[in-house]
Design a protein around this nucleic acid. Structure first.
Lengths: 184, 184
DNA sequence: TATTTATGTCAGCCATGTTGACTTATTTTA
DNA sequence: TAAAATAAGTCAACATGGCTGACATAAATA
């Protein structure tokens, strides 16, 4: 039944018909991209992980800290949408970050039900330290990948995101950009 | 207490000196890439996850199944190096895949200590079904990102991998076809 | 023969995800 | 103004998939 391409190996994976591929034969080089994406993400998260264990934190703490540092005043609800985890999962790591004075919560000015999230100076220091190796890795990769790689990779990653969330991502980014303008 | 809307925001992340950045001011657009990478991977893994629960499997099973399907005859040691997890972690999911007749183990021909791994026909079917949405997502993203995006994204992802592992990745890829140039 | 290697296995711990039920404070709405 | 909706927190239980450490077995190799 699955003997479309029965050549030498028992399985020539992905060389069978796959929906959504015009010629009905997926380019095996696209399958490479699946694997490259996995390897790249595996290594991308590795450097911060080492630092995090030093502090008794995990990857979940890193995610929270990163986004709060980058978008100060984020609400819990914003974080839930960004991370796509449950309130209870977030609560656990958030509590630990607050207990260790990495993040602070302050009631919203216009809506006092909200808990706006901010990094402490210590939290900022850690966030930057965690960001360092990731930035270095990206900068090095872009340098090695040609002049156009920044714009192209940015577009590629953006288009890999569920289109339902495109708006939210742009909105998020515009949040840091407006802050940038306040500074200049 | 940092007030909610205090304009001199406590954190202007990543705009401090960071090692490995020539002008000592990291381009904030590079920080976007950190987030885009996270969002992209978050959504990339989401489609298979839905299918996996149907089978009582998790993401760990997917990884194992993918690589065994793609590189039939893989040894346990190979898999450990690819996934960078411990033997005990792998053993747990591998056992379940074998028990459910998704993967088969056969002693190596020249070295009978080895357990060469192969997908069963059923395993191949599942592997392909899990690959489908990921391929579709990548193909769609490449189409939306310009003609050069495939080569460029491939190079970018490759260069995001620890250079220590570059050789291993190329070797892996060469296993299913002749090497192509990845180097930027 | 002795050692190394490839793999398996038991036992337990930890991080981080999940669901479900419920509370509290505050804002919005009928 | 009373009722409903919203933002967030909490408790309890459970699942997944990492980890360490110790030890077992079979086969290859020195």
């Amino acid at each position: 039944m699955a003997d479309i391409n029965s050549k030498e190996t028992p399985a020539r994976p992905g060389e069978e018909a796959i929906k959504g591929c015009e010629n009905n034969l997926p380019d095996p080089s696209i399958i490479d991209l699946i694997e490259l994406f996995f390897f790249a993400y595996r290594d991308f998260t590795q450097d911060p992980d080492v630092i995090l264990t030093e502090f008794g934190f995990g990857r979940a703490h890193h995610r929270v800290l990163h986004f709060v540092n980058r978008y100060p005043g984020l609400r819990v609800a914003d974080l839930l949408e960004i991370l796509k985890i449950t309130k209870q999962s977030l609560a656990r790591v958030l509590k630990q970050l607050v207990d260790k004075s990495i993040i602070e919560q302050h009631p919203g000015k216009s809506d006092r039900r909200e808990r706006r999230l901010y990094v402490t100076p210590e939290g900022q220091k850690l966030a930057i330290r965690l960001m360092e190796p990731q930035l270095s890795r990206i900068i090095q990769a872009l340098k090695s990948s040609g002049i156009e790689s920044e714009q192209t990779s940015r577009r590629f990653l953006y288009n890999m995101i569920n289109s339902v969330d495109h708006e939210a991502v742009l909105e998020l980014f515009s949040r840091s950009r407006s802050k940038r303008e306040l500074k200049g």
